[in-house]
C-alpha cells in the first residue's frame, strides 16, 4: 500500500510492499530512515527548524518542526523495531527559499537543523540530496529501502 504524507506528517512501516511518499518538497526537508536488517522504513516531512516560533502549531502538528518532529519519528521507528546500528538515514529537500523577512534561507537552515539534532543524538546523515532550487518528490520502498527522488524533469536515486 502507498502512504502519501503531507507537510508535518510522518509514517513508519514494516509491511512488505508498502511505499511511503511525499510530494513537492521545496524548502521542506524529508528525513528518511531505513533499517537494512529488519526492513523497517520511516519518513517525515518537516517544514521549519524550530518549534519555538509557533508553540500552538508544535502541539497540534509536531512533525512540522525539526525539534518536535524528529524525536517523534525516531520514537515510532524504534517502537516498530528499528535499530540505529543497522539504520541508514537519508535526507532530501531543503531548496533555497528565503524567509518572509529575507533574513535567512529556510531550506538551508532546515537541513542544518536536522543534522544538528541528529548529531546531538549520536546519529548522522549518510546520503543527502539537498539545496538548489528544485522541487523534489521522494519515496521509499519498504521491501528494498530504495529512496527515489523525482521532479517534473528527472528521476534519480540516493
Amino acid at each position: 500500500m502507498r502512504y502519501d504524507i503531507g507537510i508535518g506528517h510522518l509514517k513508519t512501516s514494516s509491511t512488505q510492499g508498502d511505499e511511503i511518499k511525499t510530494y513537492a518538497l521545496g524548502s521542506c526537508v524529508a528525513v528518511i530512515l531505513y533499517d537494512r536488517k529488519t526492513k523497517i522504513a520511516g519518513m517525515i516531512h518537516i517544514a521549519l527548524p524550530e518549534s519555538a516560533v509557533n508553540t500552538d502549531k508544535a502541539k497540534s502538528l509536531p512533525g512540522y518542526f525539526v525539534d518536535t518532529g524528529l524525536p517523534l519519528l525516531l520514537k515510532e521507528f524504534k517502537e516498530l523495531g528499528g535499530d540505529r546500528k543497522t539504520t541508514v538515514i537519508k535526507i532530501a529537500g531543503g531548496s533555497s527559499i528565503m524567509d518572509e523577512n529575507k533574513t535567512f534561507d529556510i531550506g538551508k537552515r532546515n537541513g542544518i537543523a536536522v543534522k544538528r539534532y541528529l548529531w546531538k543524538n549520536g546519529l548522522g546523515v549518510m546520503k543527502e540530496d539537498i539545496g538548489g532550487n528544485i522541487s523534489r518528490t521522494v519515496s521509499i520502498d519498504v521491501d528494498t529501502g530504495r529512496v527515489l527522488l523525482s521532479n517534473a524533469k528527472d528521476k534519480w536515486e540516493i
Binding site: 535567512f104 534561507d105 538551508k108 537541513g111 542544518i112 543534522k115 544538528r116
Partner: peptide, 10 residues
C-alpha cells in the same frame, strides 16, 4: 559552520 558546527551563518 554548517557542516561541522551545524549552525547557519550569514
Amino acid at each position: 559552520f554548517s557542516d561541522m558546527v551545524f549552525i547557519d551563518t550569514l
